[in-house]
Simulated assay, not measured.
Amino acid sequence: MLRLTCPHCGVTAEETELTPGGEAHLRRAGPDATDAEFESYLFARKNPKGVVFERWRHAHGCGKWFIAARHSVSWQVFGTYPAQTTEPPADLIETIRAAIPTWEGWQ
């Protein structure tokens, strides 16, 4: 079972206490976006085998959104951070690179 630590309240919760919110760090399509760009924003998602950044909500706890970095195959959790962060913290990137030296980056 997936266990994530909420960076807001510090509680480590099982996935049954959390609500998944999909891929993190999406760039919204602006008002000048083409139909294809807007469609891509709404529906196109990466689904990599490896490190993923996902939004989660601590639904049965503090209720706040956060981002979790984990491995999609092994379910190894590298860390969590507040959803308002625009990119993964440097120390989290270092943790992932230490665990997976061949990892090419988060974007």
Rank of each mutant, 00 (worst) to 15 (best):
G79V: 09
F53I: 06
A69M: 07
H71W: 07
W75P: 00
A69P: 01
E87Y: 11
A68W: 06
Y81F: 15
E14Y: 07
E15A: 14
E54H: 15
R70A: 10
G21F: 11
S40Y: 04
S72N: 00
S40L: 02
P101E: 04
A36L: 13
V11I: 10
V52I: 15
E87H: 06
E87V: 13
C6I: 08
S72T: 02
G21Y: 12
T95P: 01
E17N: 11
T12I: 04
E39K: 01
W75F: 12
H71S: 08
L2N: 01
I100N: 00
H58A: 00
H60C: 06
G50L: 00
T34K: 09
A68Q: 01
H71N: 15
K49Y: 05
C62D: 08
R70H: 15
I93M: 03
G50M: 02
P31N: 11
D32Q: 07
T102H: 12
H25W: 15
G50E: 04
L4V: 09
T5Q: 06
H8T: 13
W65I: 08
W75H: 08
E94A: 15
N47V: 03
P89D: 01
F43E: 04
A33S: 15
A68S: 13
T12S: 03
Y81I: 05
L4H: 09
N47G: 10
A36V: 08
P88V: 13
L4W: 07
S74L: 03
I100L: 14
G79M: 07
A83T: 04
Q76R: 15
A98W: 00
P82I: 10
T85D: 06
W56N: 01
C62R: 14
R3E: 10
S74C: 05
H8Y: 11
G79Q: 08
C9W: 08
R28G: 02
D91E: 15
R97G: 05
R70C: 04
M1K: 14
R27A: 01
A29P: 04
A36S: 02
P88E: 05
P31M: 10
T34N: 06
W56Q: 13
S40E: 09
L26N: 01
H25S: 03
D91F: 14
T16H: 06
E39W: 14
P7L: 02
M1I: 12
Q84F: 07
M1W: 05
A69F: 01
E104D: 12
V51R: 11
W106M: 10
R55N: 14
T95N: 06
T86R: 13
R70F: 13
K49V: 00
P7I: 01
S72I: 00
D35N: 09
R57P: 00
R45H: 12
R55M: 05
E104M: 08
F43V: 15
